[in-house]
Design a protein around this nucleic acid. Structure first.
Lengths: 161, 161
DNA sequence: TATTGTTATACTCTATAACTATA
DNA sequence: TATAGTTATAGAGTATAACAATA
């Protein structure tokens, strides 16, 4: 259990890290919004996926996934075909055009990171990656039950603020 | 200098960390958008600030800052008074109402983090905070010169894509 | 009846550009 | 002329709810 100040600082850092994401996004090719790039990268990593699985991986509502995938399909970066085993589902796969775009995206992002983080060691980056993954895991598990009004119903004995 | 794969992974982690931010945002009080909370926290940390300085701290355009500050002012969370030394500027300060809101925000965020990250040590959180701060620094310095088309002027020998 | 996916709507955040007021 | 700040507009991302098709 870490100290109060540490958590406050982490909350601030998470708010502020958006600037880094925006900086990285500016390196993306035109016509390729960040969410599309991320969707494609999940397809490359995991292969053929159903919409619902993509939504899980992106950690967004399926309605959002539907938009992103539709956009990428319009640009020819991926294909959607009906699942023969369940006609409600659609199976999404990367096209060669999508692969090529992803190569370009990856190269640009790696260039930007390698430039800005040129004084980072391999261990530094690995450590940050590990901590970020662990942070997401921790959050994925408890799933923040929608603003619980601080103490839903019970003696105020557990979290003395 | 870290490996190619490490940077790719970092790019993915940064894309995915938005889910944690959204989770944390859901813990915020009603009527308090994340950007307002972050603005208030900067005022508490640094005291009276000019608009342009807030824009720097938030790492967004001043037009964006202007909106956030105006929203917070409408809700009585901060005051804006003209700078006597430069009548173009406005000095922004936290009100008691803003302080109170910030206390509430802080408590909720710390609660959520303490719950989700209950198996993290003080050192773990400190390490992550430090790495995130360093990441922002590194990015702030090079400032990603707006999608430089990869190779501004040179032989096409590096990225065939 | 429950689930998969799509679409409509609304909200938040951001950048660019045009504008006002002051330096 | 240059700078501080505001406002209008447009683009990207997300969630909720209503809907269609299938299980």
């Amino acid at each position: 259990m870490a100290a109060h100040e540490q958590y406050e600082e982490l909350a601030r850092q998470l708010s502020a890290i958006g600037a880094v994401k925006r900086g990285l996004n500016r390196a993306l090719p035109p016509q390729c919004p960040p969410a599309a790039a991320f969707t494609l990268s999940m397809l490359r990593r995991y292969g053929e996926l159903r919409m619902s699985r993509i939504a899980e991986l992106l950690d967004v509502d399926m309605s959002v996934t539907s938009r992103h995938v539709a956009y990428a399909a319009e640009h020819g970066w991926l294909d959607r075909k009906p699942d023969p085993l369940d006609k409600r589902s659609r199976l999404v796969t990367l096209t060669p055009e999508g692969e090529a775009l992803l190569d370009e995206v990856s190269a640009r992002c790696v260039d930007a990171l390698a430039h800005c983080l040129r004084d980072w060691s391999d261990d530094d980056v690995g450590l940050l990656n590990g901590l970020l993954a662990r942070l997401r895991e921790g959050f994925g598990e408890c799933r923040t039950p929608r603003a619980p009004e601080r103490q839903p119903a019970g003696p105020p004995a557990r979290t003395p603020a």
